[in-house]
Amino acid sequence: MSEAPNLTKTTDKPRINDATLDPLPHIRHRKTRVTLVFAGALAALVILAIVSAVLGQVPTTAAEVLGSIAHKIGLDLGPLPAHPAGEVTLWQVRFPRVALAILVGASLATAGALLQGVFANPLAEPGVIGVSAGAAVGAGTVIVIGGAFVAAWSIAAAAFLAGLITTTLVYVLSRSGGRTEVVTLILTGVAINAFAGGLIAFLLFVASPAARDQIVFWQLGSLNGATWPSVAIVASLASIGIMAAVAIAPRLDLLSLGDSAARHLGIDVERLRRQVIVMVAVLTAAGVAFSGIILFVGLIVPHLVRMLVGPGHRVLVPLSAIVGAVVLLGADVAARTLVHNADLPLGMLTSLIGGPFFFWLLRRARARAGGWG
């Protein structure tokens, strides 16, 4: 008796698991990664803030720092500083410096993320539009005219206004036919920066020795003169700029599709670029007005954040602000501890660290892309 034929058709093709087509696990994984990075950045910021508040000639412990903060808000938790000058030192010297480092770092990093997003250029950073060089010219002019002992507020105000004026000049000169081209803007910024460098050299030539030293020190960057009034001014400008940057972030994602695609999706590209340039000018000018020129934070931090969480600006912009604060606060801690009884210029330190780090980023990006061509 013959066996009934097997009518079941078999195939050697592998079956596709429907789970591999489900995007939800990937989305959940990305959300978890973003949450962890945010939590890690915030934890690092708190730890560095405490460490920065502990450092100094007046001996203070982390418990005393936390106890002083708790006592200030009406809670009787932890010990107060044992040193007679500990409380005054914390609230008049160290806490303003910590707050200014956080605000300046967040402002510069947010400005860099905005510029790199709106111009789709990984080399864009606040200095490209001339705001830092203009601020240096403004500060140097006031120092030369007023002498070495001119009030710090006058220097900060001149730096802020000159930074805004220089940015406006770069934007106006780069417009052609009602549009602002990225290449033209960057090249105009390079030309303005070169001209500003010549003006700074002239100011150094005509300045008195004391004024010359002050101009050089201001250009190197420092948080040594932080006060609560200066923190209040930077905080108000930085808060407005960062909140506006977070609000505008979704449109930057659409702009990454290209100008034509963004216009079809309802984005006024030229208006968006004007808004970003204004935000960057305010954020950068507010940051450098009281701290001097601090390089590479606005260039490096957005790259670092992009490596951690991807290019989406909804996450990139706010996280850049937090990581920028961490980076500058960490650099300030290093500036105060690398050399005993010395406060290294902050801009010098960020350049020494940021330069090689950015070169490593370039090499890494080039290796992954298989070259630039």
Rank of each mutant, 00 (worst) to 15 (best):
residue 309 V to S: 07
residue 304 L to W: 14
residue 270 E to V: 12
residue 316 L to D: 07
residue 272 L to S: 10
residue 237 L to E: 01
residue 288 V to F: 00
residue 233 I to E: 00
residue 233 I to K: 02
residue 336 R to C: 01
residue 310 G to R: 08
residue 259 D to Q: 14
residue 340 H to Y: 13
residue 242 I to V: 15
residue 264 H to A: 13
residue 260 S to D: 15
residue 299 L to I: 09
residue 261 A to F: 05
residue 318 P to L: 13
residue 316 L to I: 12
residue 306 R to T: 13
residue 306 R to M: 10
residue 325 A to P: 10
residue 338 L to M: 15
residue 294 I to C: 07
residue 250 P to C: 11
residue 286 A to I: 01
residue 277 I to W: 06
residue 321 A to K: 08
residue 267 I to G: 07
residue 338 L to I: 15
residue 290 F to R: 00
residue 297 V to W: 07
residue 302 P to W: 05
residue 303 H to T: 14
residue 292 G to H: 00
residue 234 V to K: 00
residue 297 V to N: 06
residue 312 G to H: 12
residue 246 V to S: 01
residue 238 A to Q: 01
residue 264 H to F: 10
residue 282 V to F: 04
residue 272 L to W: 10
residue 238 A to N: 03
residue 292 G to Q: 04
residue 253 D to N: 15
residue 331 A to L: 07
residue 255 L to N: 11
residue 314 R to Q: 14
residue 312 G to I: 06
residue 338 L to Q: 00
residue 273 R to C: 10
residue 267 I to C: 06
residue 311 P to H: 12
residue 299 L to E: 09
residue 283 L to M: 07
residue 326 V to C: 13
residue 252 L to E: 05
residue 281 A to P: 05
residue 275 Q to R: 09
residue 334 A to C: 11
residue 273 R to N: 10
residue 280 V to C: 14
residue 243 M to H: 03
residue 335 A to Y: 01
residue 233 I to D: 00
residue 237 L to F: 05
residue 293 I to E: 01
residue 300 I to C: 11
residue 327 V to Y: 15
residue 303 H to I: 14
residue 251 R to E: 09
residue 333 V to T: 15
residue 282 V to S: 04
residue 280 V to F: 06
residue 292 G to M: 04
residue 240 I to A: 12
residue 234 V to C: 07
residue 254 L to D: 05
residue 257 L to Q: 10
residue 238 A to M: 10
residue 258 G to R: 12
residue 310 G to N: 12
residue 246 V to L: 07
residue 339 V to I: 15
residue 313 H to K: 07
residue 274 R to T: 13
residue 242 I to D: 03
residue 229 P to R: 04
residue 284 T to M: 06
residue 259 D to Y: 12
residue 238 A to C: 10
residue 305 V to Q: 11
residue 279 M to W: 02
residue 339 V to K: 09
residue 261 A to Q: 15
residue 232 A to Y: 04
residue 250 P to I: 07
residue 302 P to E: 11
residue 237 L to H: 00
residue 301 V to W: 08
residue 259 D to S: 14
residue 251 R to I: 00
residue 320 S to W: 08
residue 252 L to M: 11
residue 302 P to F: 08
residue 238 A to G: 01
residue 279 M to D: 03
residue 262 A to D: 11
residue 328 L to W: 03
residue 326 V to A: 07
residue 265 L to D: 00
residue 258 G to Y: 11
residue 302 P to S: 09
residue 329 L to S: 11
residue 304 L to M: 15
residue 259 D to P: 11
residue 299 L to P: 03
residue 269 V to M: 06
residue 310 G to A: 10
residue 299 L to W: 04
residue 242 I to G: 03
residue 271 R to Q: 13
residue 237 L to P: 00
residue 249 A to T: 06
residue 282 V to W: 00
residue 317 V to L: 08
residue 260 S to K: 14
residue 250 P to T: 10
residue 229 P to I: 00
residue 341 N to P: 04
residue 326 V to H: 08
residue 311 P to G: 13
residue 292 G to N: 02
residue 325 A to H: 12
residue 249 A to Q: 04
residue 250 P to S: 12
residue 325 A to N: 09
residue 314 R to D: 07
residue 293 I to P: 00
residue 261 A to D: 13
residue 282 V to L: 13
residue 266 G to Y: 08
residue 249 A to M: 03
residue 337 T to A: 08
residue 240 I to Q: 01
residue 258 G to D: 12
residue 303 H to R: 12
residue 296 F to S: 06
residue 277 I to R: 08
residue 287 G to D: 02
residue 264 H to Q: 15
residue 311 P to A: 15
residue 266 G to L: 06
